[in-house]
Design a protein around this nucleic acid. Sequence first.
DNA 1: AAAAAAC
Length: 728
Amino acid sequence: MPTNSGAPARASSKSKKSGPGAPKKARKVPKSFKVDGTPKKRWSSAERADRGLGPRKSGGQPNRAQRRREQFGAPVTSAGAERPRFDRESDDRPARDKTPRGDNRSRSDERPRFDRKTDERPRFDRNTDERPRFDRNTDERPRFDRNTDERPRFDRKTDERPRFDRKTDERPRFDRNTDERPRFERSGDDRPRYDRTKPELSRQTRSERPRHEAGSDRWRSTRDSRTGDNRPADNRSGGWRDDRGSRDNRSAGFSRGTDRPARSDSGESNADTMSWTARELAPVDTGAVTAEHGFARLGLPKPLVAALISEGITDPFPIQAATIPDALAGRDVLGRGQTGSGKTLGFALPMLTTLGGPAKGNRAPRGLVLVPTRELAMQVADVIAPLAKTMDMSVTLIAGGMAYGPQIRAFERGVDVVVATPGRLIDLMEQGALDLSRVEVAVLDEADHMADLGFMPAVTTIMDQMPAGGQRLLFSATLDRAVDRLVKKYLDNPVTHEVDSGQATVSTMVHHVVHILPHDKNALTAEIAGRPGRTVIFVRTQRGADRVAEQLRAAGVTAGALHGGLTQGARTRILAAFKDGTVPVLVATDVAARGIHVDDVGLVLQVDPPAGPKEYLHRAGRTARAGGTGVVVTLALPHQRKELQRLTSQAGVASAPLEARPGDEALARATGSRQPSGAAVSQADFEKLIAPPARGGGRPKNRKDFGRRDAGGYRGGNRRGTGGRSRG
DNA sequence: AAAAAAC
């Protein structure tokens, strides 16, 4: 040890020597005692007033011990002998007890501390104190006498109360043999709603299907519908797949429901789901396509090229030009292209071309696209479906939060391409509704994300169901070593295409880190969100999204929250309202960070820092898509500055930070920020804005999922949906 | 650590 006699090291304080002559460090001495052990003078408020001082600030408030002294008299007085424990000179505690307890304890040192071994708290003098005391050895508190106490007590060994044991659970209320409620049986599944011979049943809403204790929170979910928090109290990080192993877990409320009632709309049906139907293209004239056309030169068939032209897509983007030929050649491909650079078509076009057309005979899916979120699944399916249609192939969207019936029936009819999120796909696999044994082309979109800890088990489960040797295409804007395990296990001699010219983000994107003060955060958020044009705001948590959206509406900015804790219907509606401009500001968790394309998002505001450089790039990538321009603003509180410096530097977008207070002109020039109106957007008005969208031209057929009660025909189509939300 | 992925 260094012999720093001038400043005793922590270990050396074992030394008894701490008297007046000893070297002192201020922090080693309880601050309310002088170094010689006598207590410091503490001014009374009258004395403070005499000296022209105001009341004590919080740090100077008497602490508990001091208040007690004032109230009960002072066991600790200037006579040091009366508080022997705190007289360092005469302290006779065992040496090890005199080890300093760390600087953070110094404040409390002025108060009698409780030492389990040596404490003889004066305030509870054994001889005079009348209050019942608890002594571990002798106490025979009458009210808790073990022998005479009549109250039922809990004894781990003999207690008969039904307790929940994961393995041996025999809770009376869920007795397997006597319970009458319809029950999920893994084998011999007789769930009525999945009876494939009676498709009508599948169309029933969940609330109409036989099910467990409708409305029973214990059964349904641990979701807290008041706070909007869908997180179960436990098992938050265990991975949702793990919950699937035990039906008992589910019955005991360990599940993670997806049917949280919409906020402040608690009367609404739980079955607030999303529907999807393939978009259709206007008929195209394939005769107009020449072999000289950009996409045709890549080797794509005429119907596809014609369909692209009809969509206004005439020339391949670089990532498409790079990956399509290799993919058509049957190679496994790792494709990395900047956000908004056209990766979806980069895998969709070769996949459809390879599949060539509808299968003859067995029409189990031959193409599979796996994506991390439901919204992205819908978006990808929306891109692929019309293209597939031109080649007489069908595309099915398989994702949670949607009715089972259409998905199961789709497989009965025959499907060529499946676009799916992992959870529902596995669910259907386990039901036997889905056969992946004929998949020829499998795509992992956002592959690096699909390879992370939370998704990996589900992804491998699915990949393992597909025949080995099929073609695999992995795409992401941030395709890094995270996918190595997947590549090693499932890909064969893949070719990598990285089309970003070394640039992390597109050149049309401008990045600002804005240093702000904590109390300015809400005002600045509102000013930036109040800019004209579409804005996406990212926050870290679901509740943060709800909160920021609410605050923005209170400030007069029409903003809606999007996160995984909402019902799927609510998710779909708010995204639709954002896309059509009804709601110009979307406040989202990272559920919207990847892949989601909305035209003309002019600015991405990160109110909370992203989790990492990849998340930064993906969030930022919601703007400046397909050649457009965009601004990315990241707010940085003082304690986040370093972190953001590191993040932006790792993401390759570091730039000189701005400092801004509300009303800042430089910020206004950079972002278009402006003072919001201040006229709050009421909850009722907001809910009108996100009323069920008229998807697919608003044909009643497409709206049935918003009027879920119409199955029996006793109620008109979307009545319930609009009626429920448009009141008030 | 959070979010996301099923009912």
